[in-house]
């Protein structure tokens, strides 16, 4: 079982967390002005890279706060975590 470092609580067992998919997919400014295709891209399409991936996680079983993490999808290693209002850190 992996340890995920919550930016508020510190490292905790992965079972305490809830996965929230790709990070930095902003809700469109004006959804009604989008074409069906552009809207569908927002709703349904997500990247699925092998390697570092910015994701949202929620520390559901504890502080209930959402945060962002950069995780290597091949090794599961969490390379960085950052709060919602922090900029995406640069990872190698």
């Amino acid at each position: 079982m992996q340890l995920i470092p919550c930016p508020w609580c510190g490292p905790r067992d992965e079972v305490e967390f809830h996965y929230g998919g790709a990070a930095h997919v902003a809700y469109p400014e004006d959804p009604q002005s989008l074409t069906d295709e552009d809207w569908a891209r927002y709703v349904f399409f997500r990247d699925n890279p092998k390697g570092p991936f910015a994701e949202r996680w929620c520390h559901t079983a504890s502080c209930r706060r959402w945060f962002n993490a950069i995780r290597d999808t091949a090794t599961h290693q969490v390379l960085a975590v950052y709060r919602m209002d922090e900029a995406k850190p640069v990872t190698s």
């Binding site: 809830h18 929230g20 902003a26 809700y27 949202r56 929620c58 559901t60 209930r64 706060r65 959402w66 919602m84 209002d85």
Partner: peptide, 13 residues
Amino acid sequence: LDWMEEWLQTEWP
């Protein structure tokens, strides 16, 4: 509750 928190915290802080 999670759904509401998600929007509140991630999209509309």
